[in-house]
Design a protein around this nucleic acid. Sequence first.
RNA 1: CGGGGCGUAGCGCAGCCUGGUUAGCGCGCCUGCCUUGGGAGCAGGAGGUCGGAGGUUCGAAUCCUCCCGCCCCGACCA
Length: 570
Amino acid sequence: MRYSQALMPTLKETPAEAEVVSHRLMLRAGFIRKLTAGIYTYMPYGLAAIRKVENIVREEMNRAGAQELLMPMVQPADLWRESGRYEKYGPELLRFHDRHERESCLGPTHEEVITDIARKELHSYRDLPINLYQIQTKFRDEIRPRFGLMRGREFVMKDAYSFDVSDEAAQVSYKKMYEAYRRIFIRCGLKFRAVQADSGAIGGSFSHEFMVLAATGEDTIVICTACEYAANVEKAAIKPVENRSDELEKDLEKVETPGKRKVTAVCEFLGIEPDQLVKTMVYQADGKPVAVLVRGDREVEEVKLKNLLGVADVELAGDKEVFDATGVPTGYLGPVGISIRVVADQEVAAMKNFYVGGNEKNHHMKNVNCGRDFQPEHIADLRQITVSDPCPDCGGTLELTEGIEVGHIFKLGTGYSESMNAMFSDKDGVEKHLVMGCYGVGVSRIVAAAIEQNHDENGIIFPVPLAPFTVILLNLGLQDKEITDAAEMLYRELQDAGVDVLLDDRDERPGFKFKDADLLGVPFRVTIGKNFVKNGLVEVRQRRDGVTEEMSPSDVLASLPAKIAAELKN
RNA sequence: CGGGGCGUAGCGCAGCCUGGUUAGCGCGCCUGCCUUGGGAGCAGGAGGUCGGAGGUUCGAAUCCUCCCGCCCCGACCA
């Protein structure tokens, strides 16, 4: 590509809308331009990066034995009614009517369509196992799109679906995808972790997320420093508390706590520590109030709560909702004699003689005991894990870190094949439900994540496998025939050697070209200038470490393509 | 949807509080000269429904009302 003919509009200044590094750099380097909230045009250079990721994903999916197909984006509502998700999916599913008033939606994911294909085309155990995938633009009407390509409403996703004869066979398919995903993210040059995850709205029984480690990540993950354990905090199970303290249960007492509503204020006033107090949080679980008990210094993990209650949505209730449901102002709520459902974190059940709200303004209770003074409907793991908790697997020390979810794999089981009646005949002639798995990669998000992980103050530093151009060739002597001839020749020769090369033949000053080369993040920069006229040498500089060498154009040709090929191998 | 913030030239911003006649600055863009190894310099030039609608006023970018859009924090998720 000749820079003089390319639409790669770089910006010196950062548009005000961008907050995170990848978004800022993608705007500055001319990757993307926003059309409206969460919806972007992929400009030529940005699209080239996306294509690089797509190709890696495609190669690894094919290597794992999956087959590519392409499903429709516009889907009939009736299909979604069959799976029960038309009602369940929520407002992320963009619904609309076509000209014949037929209800339709834009595909946020494709379990329904692929299951429809499966029930029509897969009839025998002989057709199985099979794994079908596509790389496609998805639309999810996110509540709050943000961070550029990190969370857009339109985004490029690879989604794959496996079909098996049994749970055991599905486990094999799942493992294959797990391995394929590891290879994909390694080849993309990303630092990542596979973590145990909640299976969320897609449904299913077992799942892993692939997290790129980066401070701007929207997820928090726990990693064990001693063993292989790693999990999303939403999922990270906390070990049950073994033995309850053998302290004697004391008599229940009411104490005055005028104006003290927050845990810290109550503790300070009563001269106690937060771990002697139990807070009562009211949640709306699918619209119905539930009181959730956790120790004063703990946080409720809403995903665990949601799973325990088996509801689609939980939301912390507002002051008014709390008062309407219980007749008690927030801050003084407690489980003793409360009228709404109560669930307790397992830790609460093991505590003795603790403090809770008195269910009366300006009052708390002391010497409260679970089982004696109140009986929760469930006692379960409901709080968020912390670094002071032991590893659920080995008891070792945990670390917390932020991650960007770039892949998610699920064992779906037979949920969809049952609701949509997708069957096959087994060896013994018995009709059975297909056992499914589904596997997603956020292709456009990978580009954003890669930039989050690979940049400096001057711009992007592309890993070679993702770089739209691996070499940028700077002609610093446009007026000088000798320099220009050498640049043109090297440009052709590098292209012939299969290198993605960008020739900067723009009539700009050297500093300008250097800045753009850095901003674009091209891994290798070859500069032809004065030194070529003097002694026939060009400069080769690596973007990542700034290592610079002088050599003849023929040496460039002899060494660079091989070097690049080595980086691509992995 | 709840909370916070912002809409003035392609981009980044000032002006608004305290209304006043041709609405400024930097970058970018166009023309010319000059310059050529880290976003040069000089000269000239183009480019604006001040987000939209209504109102107050002799007069509105500025004050008031409503609407729209965008960004940030939360719930959602590849």
